[in-house]
Amino acid sequence: MSATGPPGDARPATAAGDVRVRGAGAAGDARPGGGVRVRVLGAVRRVVCLVALPALLVLLWWAVSGSSFYLPGPAAVGRAFAETWFSARLLDDVLPSVGRLLAGYALAALLGVGLGVPIGSSPRLRATLEPVLEFFRAVPPPVLVPLIMLLAGIDTPMKVLVIVSGCVWPILLNTVEGVRALDEVLADTCRMYGISGMSRLRWFVLRGASPQIMTGLRQALSIGIILMVISEMFASSSGLGFTIVLFQRQFQIAEMWSGILLLGLLGLGLSLLFRRLERWVLAWYHGSGAARA
């Protein structure tokens, strides 16, 4: 009797459950024969769900704003947003920031997965490196900013390095964990069928560890955004983080809020992209019901 996969025994039931879990947003288009009316109604309901609460919150914001100097109304922030960010700043500050973030993130992902697979596969290597890795992961990444400034100056390489140095640990440790926890029965099966080398790596190791790897990547993404902003707050004359702090120092409150809004939109956009990626990579996993283990 295996203790590893309790939920794996009820495929049809969990496949239905999966629709239900995700159903909140996507139930409408799951039925091909539902007819136009049902589909339109579903679409209307989705739109209402999507906008109702945000609209309420904006109304609330509009109602309470004006009572405080620090909270300008939605209209003022909206105007500031358009004036501030749909200008040369988009090219000078926003895009370079995002570029650095993506570069650092991609490097960290390569490094993390590349190192994580060998470390995870070898118990001895893992035992040797685990305390060191745990230590590096436990160091709050922002404290490395003063240090990396010392070593790498204050230009783009420093900022990318800061992002890599923070993002790599969650990816690395989650990859190690995922590779370690690979299904032993599947490992034996691979051995039995003589699957080895690249195809073992691609179809068994990376596949099997992918839920964990994606978890690591998701954690790393939010750390990456934090570090992108922080690295620019320290010593910089451009970039999103620098600009927002500049607004704050000059008491341009509406502009500052618009910067916060922009960071939020950026975070939202990246996390939506990431969700797409995750759904694509983990389609097999969510479908199998193993997600609950």
Partner: peptide, 22 residues
């Protein structure tokens, strides 16, 4: 859940360091 998901999904990824100036 359906009603709040858009709000949660919007607020959650806002990096908390964006609140530093505030």
């Amino acid at each position: 859940r359906a009603l709040t998901s858009s709000t949660v999904e919007f607020l959650r990824p806002i990096p908390s360091v964006a609140l530093v100036p505030l």
